[in-house]
Design a protein around this nucleic acid. Sequence first.
DNA 1: AGTCACACCCACACACCAG
DNA 2: GCTGGTGTGTGGGTGTGAC
Length: 675
Amino acid sequence: MSSVNDFDTAPDEYVDAKESSHNDKRHQKAELSEDQLNSKAPNENHSLFKGYSFFINTKPDAYGKKSDINSLTRLALSHEGTILDELPDSTSMTGEQRSKFYVVSPYNSTNLNTVTATYIKACCQNNTLLEAHDYLVPYDDFKKGEQNTNANEAEAKNDKNDKTDSIDSELVGNIQLQSMTAENTTPLQLNNSKEKNKKNRRSQKNKSPTVSYNKASFTEEEDEFILDVVKKNPTRRTTHTLFDEISNYLPNHTGNSVRHRYRVYLSKRLEFVYQVDSNGRLVRDENGDLIKTKVLPPSLKKKFTAQEDYTLAIAIKKQFYKDLYQVDPDSGSSLIMADDSPVMVAKRKVTMAPNHVPGTEPSFDSFKVLDRTGPLAREFFKSFSEKNTSHTENAWRDRFRKFILPYGIDAYIEYYDSEKAKGKEPEPMRNFTNRAVRVGPPTPGNYNSVNKRAKLNINEVRNAAAAAAAAASAHVGYTIPENELLDETTMKFISTIKNDIESQQNQQNFEYPQDIAEAIRQDFANEENQYDNLEIDVMEFPPAIASVDLFLPEFFRMGSVKVFVDKIQEIISRDYEPSQAEKLVQDLCDEVGVRKTFSTSVLTALSGDLMIFPRYFLHMFKENANPPTNVPGIWTPEDDIMLKNNKPQEIDILIQKHGKGRIEMRKRFVERDLI
DNA sequence: AGTCACACCCACACACCAG
DNA sequence: GCTGGTGTGTGGGTGTGAC
């Protein structure tokens, strides 16, 4: 699979770096300055790379810095190597050509011989053509992994060492994909004995094949970002998924690594979290600000304590006692009533001990459950969980099934009482889950680069469509969903990353046809008098509908609707690019106190048409409705349903309300899943 | 040789569903 | 509607290897 085998026929002039005079040169070499690398030793071999050619991956996530590329190029050329401007067609290469050609890249998406930049530097520093094994970058066969149905074919191709056009053609696509991750993952075919031993150890433990990856250090901004999101998601601070979600915004790190970063380093820096309600939602004060607290909320799952196990065991024992003898275990009084319903009597007959004579039942303390396991009504767990809220009904039931039953109700009660009597603290039940090893997906809680890339691959397709639609919709270009849990600082950080990524992508711009744009402009001009010239001076401020859910304190300080609308007009008249919707939303938040979630929802209702942005607020304030109804250009959920139904009668209503141009615009909005 | 990025583990809490 | 089967992902780590 890996291209390692390609190097089995390496020329004799290779020297194993490990046998040369320096120990572990790779590290020394990596630390050398460019000046050192460029300076030539007196006995330098200037023909090191004679006959060898290199293609340097210049993508931003590889050696994107010009200085790096120049340095590598100089080194190769000054030692008589050849630098290729583009990747050669591997199918037309001879075996000899293949063996004397290297892609220089931190990742290998070509299945051609690929080495890291260190190889070139190391050869120059050691003044000899080093053995390439230690510098080889394994082939990233992620795409093959995705296409399981073709797995056998791909395997056969690789076995024959036949690098076909189809593999070469993946280069560009893979590099693009890699630009988001800068990581490689591939099964290795190990050659040296040390690595073989590691491989054997792994196979003995039946683990997944080892992986290779490039590491990226965490920057201060990334650390702050992680901490900030944790502060706003305190209930999820121990989960894997939160960190996997964070890693979506950190292209160079996986969920695994972000989580580890937090656990080992950043958690010590968590000085406070933001207060959340019982559902984990952030709580705000009367000014709309988040509330800092040093009290960590409970996590999503709680371990069972010995006390809880005991309480459950006793409750179940009591239930069985009641069922068998129809006597209340606490009071000793009979539960049988003369006026019991027939259903009650029937139930009792099912659960009661056969031939039991009332009054002959044992005391509750001397009663033994023995091997009785049920029946235990769901109602029992329902009412038990209502009284014991530390776990859910399902969790209590599962605890009963998986732990209390195997341990034994009598046995645990006896153990617990006995430990207490000795003054010891009893332990909760443990090690009763022996579920079969799950097949298929990897072990839970493993968010590695393969998973991340698979997800990115899906998201790329989705985002490309959304980005095109966003550009079309004039000003809604931001496709990362705004999360209530992310504040301004966080959003700015995301924005920076997002813009960086977008600048690397060749996004397809999409324009509305001229006739649609013209129709919308015409409609707007006709509507202006009726819908945009309201008497705003007489409107009360703050408007009744302006709640703190929608507006920040900045809004309430504006004093009048006129000041607010004027400011809105000024903001939207600025020259925002289609991709700057997020900046617009940010500016609205900063300058007029419109919460970002709200302004995003307004933009959605307007299909991104900024011209009618003030209209939305005017009619919202006037009608005391959000969204305002019966206003052209403002799409209500009902409108969207009618559009979806596509009934001629309903479409006619929509045409009357919004005009044909806006209907076309809305359809495109819906098609791109932007609603 | 030490640090740390990343992979990987696994018991089990919580959930849902079909028989 | 009780019960068993089992999916999912949390919680608390440890192992590996790149740098």
